[in-house]
Design a protein around this nucleic acid. Sequence first.
RNA 1: GCGCCCAUAGCUCAAUGGAUAGAGCACCGGCCUUCUAAGCCGGGGGUUGUGGGUUCGAAUCCCACUGGGCGCACCA
Length: 564
Amino acid sequence: MPDSLHQTIREAIEDILRAGVEQYLESVGAQAEMPEISLEVPRNAEHGDWASSLPLRLCKGLKKNPFEVAEGIVAAMPASSLIEPPQVARPGFINFRLAAGSVEHLIRRVLELGEKYGQSDTFKNERVLVEFVSANPTGPLHIGHGRGAVIGDTLARIFAAAGYGVSREYYYNDAGVQMKTLGESLRIRYLQALGEDIPFLENGYKGDYMVELGEKLKAERGDSMRGVTDTQPFTDYAANFIIGLINEDLERLRIHFDTWFSETTLHKEGKVKQALDELESRGKLYEQDGAKWLASAEYGDEKDRVVIKSDGNYTYLAPDIAYHAYKFERGFTRLVNVLGADHHGYIPRLKAAIQALGHRPDQLDCVLVQMVAVERAGEAMKLSTRAGDFITLKEVLDEIGVDVTRFLFLTRTADSQMVFDFELAKDTSMDNPVYYVQYAHARCCSLMRKAEEVGQAWENGEGADLGLLTAPEEKALAHQMDRFPQIVIEAARQAEPVLVTSYLRDLATAFHGYFTAGNKDLSLRVVQENNPALTQARLTLIAALKQTFANALELLGVTPLERL
RNA sequence: GCGCCCAUAGCUCAAUGGAUAGAGCACCGGCCUUCUAAGCCGGGGGUUGUGGGUUCGAAUCCCACUGGGCGCACCA
């Protein structure tokens, strides 16, 4: 039963452990509830490949000493061909080690599943909507948007791998003052392009791209719009164009949105009114001072919030509530918003709103992305779209490249403040962890090429005798590979891409160590010219590693290079 | 003033409440006549911002301080 291809060793151990605990509890006649199975990979290899501290948690309720509890559980556990008999350690840990035979099981599982290795159906009944970037189309994306974009997209990839139905959505607010200002900015740039000597808006969008856009409009329409005073046509023209620019950058970053959702849609389809009516009928709205308030304080917000001002207009919150209600209406069971950290004050009222609508607060996850400070040649730079003073995402992609950009954003947790140092990122050498990981994949490819050169090309591994893989490094590599599917599930659960990045680096470290060991000890080389059987066995391990590297890199949207 | 986030090696960052807090960069010393040295091995470097608390066990959870970031509208 535990030999199912899709089951990781971890899951097999969990089953065994669970059975042991049940049996043990019964034998001592305890009423204790079945605790959550805890199983971790110890930092220290001496503590085995997997370890559980379950006896330490259990002993409290049983009023027994943890060591005895551990022994009792071990005695009651069924045996498994995948692991060696478990050991009880000091305070009350149970340590598990992979059985030698499990190496073969693990490698074959990776190869059998191929590109699907790492995927699972853990969350198959759930649908998640990842909303990210969501910058209003008032200018090109800057580097900070890039960080949010990469994190959002990678989360989406991770969710998909963990079995979620996933949709990527970009929301933009095209009904507000910002867009009006944008249109007005373009109108003036256009008139200036026509030669009129008029001053620019004080609060207008001052970037060069607006000057260019004015020229472009002149080139397309001549002076036919000279007399147009309504800003709307200018707004539409600018927004359309800028969305195009934004999308270009995003596609380059390997990000594709399923939906571009505009605020106007909500108004047109009556979703704002619908959401407020729903809140009204649930008794969550009330009138005061001529305004309509949401009783958000009931749900942990620090105060109630106005949704309809006394002048009859909606506040920003109203369409936002409607938007999130509409997300649920479309069948999503989990909402993930990737936001700039400056929006954090907004989260409690949003969570309050979805609760007022009858949803659970944990169905909404807000991932806060901290600002990116940029340093160039030692100079710190200020970023402001309005002032036209910023590092665009395009510049970053031109200078640094997609793989490096994505990986650098993914090596830090979203909420850590980061300094993006251009010179450092451009450096193609040591400071760039991307290469470390890509190098590992390329080395696997290189070994395959080498084997081919000496006439021992890998023969798909089916006939290989994997029992020959007895080096401790080989067992360790197999164990590391086995962790991958669980890492993906955990990353999805926590909405935390860094888990995958860290895992990838660890796996690369293990592999580089294995590879380099062959420099000193020729018997550890993968390609053994006078031992075809061992060569085939090792190549099969390499093939599985290569697959795992490729799958993990794909999850991060980074290219698995064949050679560096 | 109130709230949220952050604080870990000189620097950039890790560490599902677990056993001796780890990598990379920088610094010191080793390893290329045969699978890629963008790599590997070893060394120095820490009172996890400070002080309490919770418990078998805390970088992790709670409280109070200190320092930094960001929010506190009938703005969007």
